[in-house]
Write a protein that binds this DNA or RNA. Structure first.
Lengths: 335, 335
DNA sequence: GCAATGTTGTCCCAGTTTTGTCCAGACAAA
DNA sequence: TTTGTCTGGACAAAACTGGGACAACATTGC
């Protein structure tokens, strides 16, 4: 369980003091207590000296309730909702034009463990079949259904990632036409792009610039990262693919981003990559870390080491590094 | 299965406070109450402390009434209509809106104007400012709000189209950085892509393949077309940008599409365009018409004429041609 | 063309409910 | 000691309600 937890769960272990919760949610300490007193919005555990201790789950709920209120909901109405119900309410409110999710009845705790791999593979196969038959509607349906079954990070790692690889592979082998790949890519671009907006923002999130460097035209990896980090309370500044180093640096500085993350996939050995990465590293204030992800990152390991960039090997590794960074930032801030 | 039902039927359970309704419809709280007082436009349920509680059905009605009013309808006339009747009225108006010719039949008071152009320009300026300050959240908010104010086709034509042109222009003039343009483009890609899914599909819609030919990397025009035709009951098979002619043809044949639509923007004089268009025309069964849209279509007028392609000069022209085609197809089918 | 009338969005009022902030005194942590 | 958190309560701002006033504008009748 513990290993899976890291991918998919929102931790329910109580450990955060109220101040951190206030910081992360954008609420005041007083308000959090008042909500608890009046509506039992949260029921935090206590330390042996009666200090409130909140879990990640609580924080996420409070964040969502804050947004729900901004959208015009009344506290009385949203206070008793579960995290999942809140997600639905908030995403419906902030994007009421989105395809109405019809799975309200399905109870899916966010700590749901990832699907059995065979199950997942079946899903992926079904998706590939839908692509092959150009059945967009079915494809979309499968994507939506798959998302219901697991948490977003787990879904990206176990379904979307493998699906992308298989589509690429099948096209190279001639099992899929270019037209099929195009359709699937376009559809996934829309789908993953929309995922980001399932999350909600308070305005206090640290920013992260996400893009791909010059020459890297495939954006889906970067987009997945944007969706992923949204879950953990980052605000992605997403620039799409193929951004020159100068522009990335300018954007990071203008937006006040805490981190930059790049995705490298294809072509893996583009000669511009070393130039661009070096240029980016020198232009950025040394305080802004640069993360490198994507399948082609391994090709540039020496360069990455030399420049002091960070290249976690998995999506989950990236996620953990970022979370550590974010929480470190919190400590510095209050120290 | 149940999915279609849940999508198309609107919940009548009263649960939304008036503030939320105001947010979603773009009306003010005062106005909603005034309409209720004067015309019983809605008759919301009440909480135990007399607070108004609206249903999804109410909200949708208010939204449509707002649009109907913008189209020049009088409140007295539309207030008693059911949701379905309102839908008819609004969609009828939106057709006449842009068919500037024969609007004589419809009663339209003199103050009718879809949206004051100055108003629209203000919105666009605000969006440009949000882009310039890299305020994605604001940008998204403005896009959403704009959409509430008018019907989707009108919105695409009066806001999104001009916005795209101004972003391109500003970037060329150096008023925006490339990073800004990238951010805006990426964001719009997500936004427009999601628009298509506002519509609900029955499975009987005629299909239309939408893409851009080889060398044309800008996909937003094509994506706008996909969103646009969805409104009129087409099912877009969207392939993203840069699709070779052979693949377009294969896709059209495999999916049984009735029409193909291409968007040409940049580079306008790409030498591959004539080759690709010719190739496409010959590979497609003569029965499948090919529409050409986009700012660069004019550069290829002789070619378009020679190949017998169709190039309406505006989005609305395209829309009308397609509707005519669809209805003609329908008649043949039933005759 | 002008006056009377109708339509419509906005604002104000006074009373109620809901919600955010503040305070005081006690205790715990750094 | 200083700072932060705890409980319980007080207070004030914001939001909602019903009612009505009013100005801007369009329509209608002359």
């Amino acid at each position: 369980m513990a290993s899976l937890e890291t991918i998919s769960s929102i931790d329910t272990a109580p450990r955060h003091p109220i101040r951190l919760v206030a910081n992360r949610t954008g609420l005041t300490v007083d308000l959090i207590r008042a909500w608890e007193k009046r509506y039992h919005v949260v029921d935090p555990a206590r330390s042996d000296t009666k200090r409130r201790l909140y879990s990640d789950y609580d924080i996420e709920r409070l964040r969502l309730i804050r947004i729900a209120k901004q959208n015009g909901r009344r506290l009385v109405d949203v206070a008793p909702l579960t995290l999942e119900a809140l997600r639905d309410v908030v995403s419906e409110d902030s994007r009421y034009d989105q395809a109405q999710d019809n799975q309200a009845e399905v109870y899916r705790p966010s700590w749901t463990s990832p699907l059995e791999s065979s199950d997942t593979q079946d899903d992926i196969d079904a998706m590939l079949f839908a692509v092959q038959t150009m059945d967009q509607h079915r494809f979309d349906q499968l994507l939506q259904e798959g998302l219901v079954k697991q948490s977003l990070p787990a879904y990206l790692e176990t379904v979307i990632g493998p699906l992308l690889r298989e589509i690429g592979e099948s096209t190279r082998l001639g099992k899929l036409r270019i037209a099929h790949e195009h359709m699937a890519t376009a559809h996934l671009r829309t789908f993953i792009g929309a995922l980001r907006f399932r999350e909600t923002y308070t305005g206090n999130e640290p920013k992260i610039v996400i893009t791909t460097p010059t020459g890297q035209l495939h954006e889906l990896g970067a987009l997945m990262i944007a969706a992923l980090v949204s879950v953990d309370g980052w605000l992605p500044v997403y620039l799409g693919p193929n951004t020159p180093a100068d522009e990335i640096a300018a954007c990071a500085l203008q937006s006040g981003a805490r981190v930059v993350s790049l995705s490298l996939t294809y072509p893996a050995d583009d000669p511009r990559i070393p130039t661009e990465l070096t240029r980016l590293r020198t232009q950025l204030d040394g305080k802004i870390p640069v993360f490198i992800g994507g399948s082609a990152a391994a090709h540039h390991q020496p360069l990455i080491d030399r420049l002091g960039l960070i290249a976690p090997s998995t999506l989950n590794g990236l996620r953990q590094s970022l979370n550590a960074l974010r929480d470190r930032g919190y400590k510095e801030q209050t120290a």
